[in-house]
Structure formats: C-alpha cells, structure tokens
C-alpha cells in the first residue's frame, strides 16, 4: 500500500532522498515559517516540522505543517509522546491526515526539564514504538487502540528516529529492528559526525536486514561555528562529535569557519552515500536554513525528482 506521500514516492523510486526541517516559530505569525520554507522550496522531497523541540513551546507542528503544505511542500509532521495521551495522539493523527499531511515522524520527545516549562507535567502515555504501532493499526487495520472501527483511515507514511550514537551502542540496531517490526517505514538518524561509528551501526543494521524493511536517512548537520560544535559535543545528550572535527574548525581562520563547516558537512554526505543501505539524507541546519540549497547543490543532489 502506498500513501500519497511524496517522500514515499521518491524513496520507492530508488532515488536518493533529501529531507530537511523547519522549526516552527515561537509565536502565531506564519511569516517566519514561510520565510524558512522559501529557502527550501524545490530542494527537498519532504520537510520535517518539529514538535515543540527541546520542550520549548512553539507553534504546533500540525499548524506549521499546514502552512508548508500550502506552499507546496510534503510535510513530515513530527509527533512526540511527551505532550499528548493516546486520545489526543489519535485525534491529531486523524486531523493531520484529513488535511493532507501524509508523513508522520514518531518520537518520544525530549524531557520537559530541558525546555522553557520545566514545571510542566509530562504525559508519556505511550512510547515512540507504541506510537508507530498506533499509526499502523489506524491505517492498516482501520482501528483505534480501543479496537473500535475508524471511519476514514489515515493515509500516513510512518517514520521514526534512531540515535546510533546513544548507549548502549550494541542494541541501537536491535531497537531499530523493533521500530521496523512495529511498522516504521523510514528512519531519520541523529546527526552523523562520527562516520566510523555510524558505519559500524549500519553494519549491524544490515546484518539484521533492517535496510530492506525500511528506508534509512542519515542525519546531517553543518557546523556554523566552533562554539556550536563544542556545545553539541558537551551539552546535547546522545551527540557524538569527534575531537578531530573540533580541532579542524579550531585551526581554521575565523572568517572561514562557516565555509569549513559546510565542507565537513559535504564530506560526511559523500561518505554516508557510499554506505550500503542508506536511502537518503535528512539535513538539520539549525537556524541556518538558507544554507541548505547550497549544501544540496554542492552535494550534487539537485534538482530533486519531481
């Protein structure tokens, strides 16, 4: 069964897929999202819309997805389990599908202690793997979690995330296998900086045959500055930034660091493309969206299949 998702179409056609992301604004003004979107127009097969990323309140991923849909994008709506119980989750899935959103990325979500409302009560009624199961059940069996029949099944291409750099390392491929078994059709990984470790993980992924069950998109993030690289290494949980990369940026004259960051990013893209089982890349250019077209062009991934 194929959904109306463009991303699914591109992946199924065997083309190397490119996705990127748009973080919704901290306000009700849609201008910011349109502006970010304008940079990406024509350069991506799908655009992720984050869901209150790092637990900071932003415009809902649903609304921002609709704005991007209007602009002609194929949104990948992110959904975390932190803020919704199964009632709200199923309701939002129906709502999104009803209004033409055909990709859903299932995540557990950062703990609220990282965000701007650390005194909030979290939900975590179901976890990310159970969320995948829920979407699949709604779409394929036409049933709610309660077992009751759905009138008008949601047409959704199901995605998930995995962090190959989190611990324990040796179960990270197994966990992805669980997500595939639950019904995930594509995965976008955490930012890849340590290609060697990523290759090892992919080896385990291939040994389990997961690359034949789902499309694997490697997460790519360009470094804007040495400070950002250091911050990601030391302060972002589950991030693996090799010391060599930081040194390389550090040894670069200050006004050339950004260019060097893009260069590193292109090298990583080149390297992951050669890894067997990689079906595409997911570029997360944090507050640097306008650089994404440049990266995609330089990587030889432009134009995109229409």
């Amino acid at each position: 069964m194929t959904t109306e998702s463009n991303l699914e179409k591109v992946l199924k056609s065997g083309s190397f897929a490119v996705t990127s992301e748009c973080g919704p604004p901290r306000g009700a003004d849609t201008e910011a999202i349109r502006k970010k979107g304008a940079f990406l127009k024509g350069y991506v097969d799908g655009v992720n819309v984050t869901d209150n990323q790092t637990s900071v309140v932003r415009m809902s991923s649903f609304s921002a997805s609709l704005v991007l849909k209007e602009m002609g994008f194929d949104p990948v709506m992110q959904m975390v389990c932190r803020d919704r119980n199964r009632i709200a989750i199923q309701s939002d899935i129906l709502g999104a599908a009803a209004l033409g959103i055909h990709n859903l990325l299932c995540l557990s979500g950062d703990h609220q202690s990282f965000g701007d409302h650390p005194s909030a009560k979290n939900v975590f009624d179901i976890d990310s793997i159970q969320l995948i199961q829920t979407v699949k059940r709604m779409r394929d069996d036409g049933k709610f979690l309660s077992g009751e029949q759905i009138k008008g099944r949601p047409d959704i291409f199901i995605g998930c995330v995995e962090n190959p750099f989190a611990d324990p390392f040796d179960i990270r491929a197994l966990r992805l296998a669980k997500k595939a078994a639950a019904g995930a059709q594509f995965v976008q990984t955490q930012c890849v900086f340590n290609v060697e470790k990523f290759s090892k993980w992919m080896e385990m992924v291939r040994d389990l045959g997961i690359h034949e069950k789902m499309y694997i998109l490697a997460g790519i993030t360009p470094f804007k500055s040495v400070g950002m690289a250091r911050y990601m290494k030391t302060s972002v949980p589950g991030m693996d930034v090799p010391e060599g990369l930081i040194k390389r940026l550090n040894d670069t004259p200050k006004d050339e660091v950004a260019d060097e960051g893009i260069k590193i990013c292109l090298e990583i893209i080149e390297q992951v493309r050669t890894i067997k089982g990689i079906a595409g890349i997911h570029i997360m250019a944090i507050e640097w969206e306008h650089k994404v077209p440049e990266i995609i062009e330089a990587a030889g991934l432009y134009p995109r299949p229409s």
């Binding site: 979500g109 990310s128 793997i129 995330v161 989190a166 611990d167 324990p168 589950g238």
Partner: peptide, 13 residues
Amino acid sequence: AKSILNGPCGGSQ
C-alpha cells in the same frame, strides 16, 4: 524519566 516501555531512548549516554 519518560516511562518508556520499549527503551532506551536516544538520550541514554
């Protein structure tokens, strides 16, 4: 911290 029944999440380090 997230009461995940199918863990660990990507933040385990």
